[in-house]
Simulated assay, not measured.
Amino acid sequence: MRRYLLNVSYLGTPFRGVQRQVGVTESSRPDDFETVQGQIEYALKKLRSINEPATVLSSRTDAGVHALHNAMHVDLERNGDTPHNPTTISLCLNQYFNRNQIPIRILSTYLVPDSFHSRHNAISRTYLYRLIVIKDDTPPLTKHLPVEEYGRSLFISSSEFDFEKLKEASQLFVGHHDFRTFMHKSNKLPDLITRKVMEKCEVYETRPFWSVPHAWPYCVNGNQEDYIGYNIVLKGNGFLYKQVRRTVASLIAVAKGIVTAKDIKFMLEIPSHQSWNPKIKTVPAHGLYLCEVAYSKEDRDTFKEQLED
């Protein structure tokens, strides 16, 4: 039995989330084609290993959330005890996903020590939320919304959007805080550790994905100059359920003048579900990307991309 680390990317739109949701018993592991994990485990069966492939996720993402990089490990046993070549695993899985038009790709596969754990060994995770602001109060559906950004970014309309206030408020989240207020209250685990370290919370202006100038003369009620794109980047040692989306929602509310930086400070200093400001509405999943799951240099030095002779 050998352990492998799979680095994966996917579009979350067609999935119910990354984690398999079909019940599992010791005697059977039914296929779950509506989750990323289920699809990957089914594709791993194409390798014809002796054992049933069961992956372990480094990070869970909700339905509709995308990943530029997520990671998982899996133990595989092959006839004759000869390890699978990591490159062959990537090729086999990507051929299956491409042939069946499944928006998952294996970025790389590594042979790793049996003691390596994709979740426990991760030292940080980085998320990106893409926001596009229409610079007036015209409802988004009456403007031209480029198809390149459909299901990839959140569009909002606001003539009062204050980027400087957003940047200032973002720094309130950096450091060691109890983020219980920003955790979705459906998570009722009494022993859950809600104190986390936020290493980075940055916001910067960026260009939208689309770059087709010849299309704009044909757009109705919309010009390319009417839109401003923003990337909101959060990096930490771990995140609570919906913490990123509620953090982004809070920053947008500050920029729009719905709440103030003092309201954010209150929610951080008085960590409780009752402290959440009801004026803030959680942003949808489709603008969120898991960008990176990071491991220490000591761990990375043990990764083997191909079999040694």
Rank of each mutant, 00 (worst) to 15 (best):
H117E: 10
D114T: 14
H84V: 07
T126M: 06
L76F: 12
P113I: 04
L107Q: 14
H117Q: 10
V133M: 12
D75E: 15
C92T: 15
A63N: 03
L68V: 01
R125W: 03
G64F: 07
S124R: 04
L111G: 03
H66S: 04
F116L: 09
N79V: 12
D136K: 11
Q95W: 04
S90C: 11
G64Y: 02
S118D: 07
G80Y: 15
Y129Q: 06
T87R: 12
A122I: 08
A67I: 01
R105N: 13
R125Y: 02
D81S: 13
T126A: 06
N94L: 04
L131D: 07
M72E: 11
D81W: 08
S90V: 03
G80C: 09
L131R: 13
I106L: 01
L128P: 06
Y129R: 07
A71S: 15
I106K: 00
N121H: 13
N100F: 11
V74W: 05
G64E: 02
R99A: 15
D114I: 07
T109K: 04
I123T: 13
F116A: 07
N85P: 07
R119G: 01
R99Y: 11
L76V: 14
H84K: 11
R99Q: 13
K135N: 15
T82V: 15
L128C: 11
R105S: 10
Q101D: 14
P113W: 11
I89S: 01
G80M: 15
P103W: 08
I123G: 01
A67C: 00
V74H: 04
H66T: 01
L128A: 06
M72I: 04
